[in-house]
Design a protein around this nucleic acid. Structure first.
Length: 515
RNA sequence: GGGCGUGUAGCUCAAUGGUAGAGCAGUGGCCUUUUAAGCCAUUGGUUGGGGGUUCGAGUCCCUCCACGCUCACCA
């Protein structure tokens, strides 16, 4: 019966796999379950170690025996005739098993010798001890297989030198394979596992910061009948029964601000945005966004909150507000540098865009300065190009860039007495844009005019046109409190705090082309 | 989409246009405190796919695929 159940549909593709399949059949013939249902773990590897060390410290003279049953994946093994050493690893760490044929009996030892491979999960019961060299180990008297690994994992060997430095041999380092088979990367590369723990801590730090500031966490639609809140091409999908096209959201902005109309004073959402655009070291088609909106404040209030929030996250994740990113040391301790976009561009390029109020003139002076310009760009787009090419790469230490051209910011209030600029800032750290914030526009008449303006500006590039969201205008006509809001690219923050130069390293399953 | 680069055994990597190799993993031995264990023997390849040049191609050329870096795009 067992044999029939294990008739393989899958063909081993190489000798190591064929060997393991043979061992699977050998186990079945001996009546041993290769994937049993029940486990009886009493200690994680770390708990077993600390229980033993505690006993050693308490009863130095006559320590009581410490009995444990530990489980884990075999990551190193060494069969020496009638003795078998193995390191097993679980989520906590590793521990060595010391198995003598006298302690486990001939049958179990034969199983170890003939059927056990690196990568298998096993359960081992025994007594804690130290080997001759002092390594804390389990002297095993019971050992069973928990899960047979049919494909070999990449083997990584490590040597700890005298100064505690770990040398690695045969590391699984092929970048593409690490992304395509993230499970294998995580299984063998502890530092990859570490990155995603750091990622979780980052998200949880942002969340707890905002919770403590009185923000309410909300969830708004991912499938939207009208997309908006940013300028990006959307992914389009379809609801069959409603016969309706839907868009995967490109931002949360318009839904969160509806909630301020609904009398929540402060809301935030952490979730996925989708943009149908290019992939790069800092772009993935789906990415994690944090947006938060607060009533009765403006973009200065949001600035203060944001720098405190990111400093808090850095402290929680790395233990310091000073972090290493590539070749730079970044100090996230508030307050951060604040400089207007106009001054920043003037400082880094010598161009004062106020002197060139027409797109043609600005275009010309940019060409003279050797800045490549996008075709048919509006004046605002040109200013933004200057920001991206001239300023952004130089903004290593955290900085707020303030006051943006009005025509590229349809959801922000204008600067009093300056119709060409809006109260908007972007956050730059490590040469990357981290976030974008405004004193939010709450004037429904102005907002409608902006929508129409945007529609006109982009009508000839239909895939970037921003559709008018009538329902959003309707909400705003009920009255929206004055407010400030901000969007933070969570993936980029994680890149900073984990010191990774590409977004793919901090996404568990980054987008890759189909093979 | 453009430019540059990479792709060889399960993993990490070698190989002037001239017989495709090593270490680890695997397989068969020896070994009752090893830890990159060791020793002896040994299996393993459509050199990313396809086409071309050549007496002969992993190597040179063309093309396709994937990945990396970079530029463009991403208000």
């Amino acid at each position: 019966m067992l044999r029939r159940k294990y008739r393989l549909m899958w063909e081993p593709t190489n000798t190591p796999e064929a060997d393991r399949v043979r061992k699977l059949h050998q186990l079945l013939e001996r009546g041993l379950a290769p994937y049993p249902n029940r486990v009886q773990r009493t200690h994680s590897t770390a708990e077993a170690r600390s229980a033993f060390e505690a006993e050693e410290n308490e009863n130095r003279e006559t320590p009581e025996p410490v009995e444990v049953t530990v489980c884990g994946r075999i990551v190193r093994q060494n069969l020496k005739g009638k003795v078998y050493f193995a390191h097993i690893e679980d989520g906590d760490g590793r521990i060595q098993l010391f198995v003598r044929i006298d302690n486990v009996g001939d049958d179990t030892f034969a199983m170890i010798k003939n059927e056990l491979d690196l990568g298998d999960f096993i359960q081992a019961g025994g007594t804690m001890m130290r080997t001759r060299t002092g390594e804390v180990s389990v002297m095993v008297h019971d050992l069973i297989l928990l899960s047979k690994a049919l494909s070999p994992l990449p083997i990584i060997k490590e040597q700890t030198t005298g100064d505690g430095e770990v040398k690695r041999f045969g590391a699984f380092s092929d970048v593409e394979e690490r992304y395509r088979q993230r499970y294998a990367d995580l299984a063998v590369n502890a530092e990859s596992r570490h990155i995603f723990r750091q990622r979780a801590r980052t998200v949880s730090a942002l969340r707890s910061f905002l919770d403590n500031e009185g923000f309410l966490e909300v969830e708004t639609p991912i499938l939207q009948p009208i997309y908006g809140g940013a300028a990006a091409r959307p992914f389009i999908t379809h609801h069959n029964q409603l016969h309706q096209d839907l868009y995967l959201r490109i931002s949360f902005e318009l839904y969160l601000k509806r909630l301020l109309v609904g009398m929540y004073d402060a809301v935030y959402e952490i979730g996925r945005d989708f943009r149908n655009e290019g992939v790069s070291y800092k772009h993935n088609p789906e990415f994690t966004q944090l947006e938060f909106y607060k009533a009765y404040t403006d973009y200065f209030g949001i600035m203060n909150l944001t720098e405190r929030m990111l400093a808090y996250a850095a402290q929680q994740v790395t233990g310091s507000t000073t972090i290493v990113f590539g070749e730079h040391t970044l100090d996230l301790t508030p307050p951060w540098q604040r400089i207007t976009l106009r001054d920043a561009i003037r400082q880094y390029s010598g161009i004062d865009y106020i002197d060139y109020p027409e797109a043609d003139a600005l275009h010309r002076v940019m060409q003279e300065a050797g800045v490549e310009t996008p075709k048919g760009a509006t004046w605002g787009r040109l200013v933004d190009t200057l920001l991206g090419t001239v300023v952004e790469p130089r903004l290593i230490q955290p900085a707020f860039i303030l006051e943006y051209p009005r025509d590229i910011s349809p959801f922000a209030k204008t600067v009093p007495g300056d119709e060409t600029h809006v109260e908007r800032f972007e956050i730059f750290v490590g040469g990357m844009e981290m976030g974008n914030a405004f004193t939010e526009l709450n004037d429904p008449v102005d907002q409608e005019a902006r929508f129409i303006e945007m529609e006109r500006l982009y009508s000839d590039e239909d895939d970037e046109a921003t559709p008018i969201d009538e329902d959003y205008l309707h909400a705003m006509r009920y009255g929206m409190p004055p407010c400030g809001g901000c969007g933070i690219g969570v993936d980029r923050v994680v890149m900073l705090l984990t010191n990774r130069s590409t977004i793919r390293e901090i996404l568990l399953f980054p987008h890759l082309r189909e093979r």
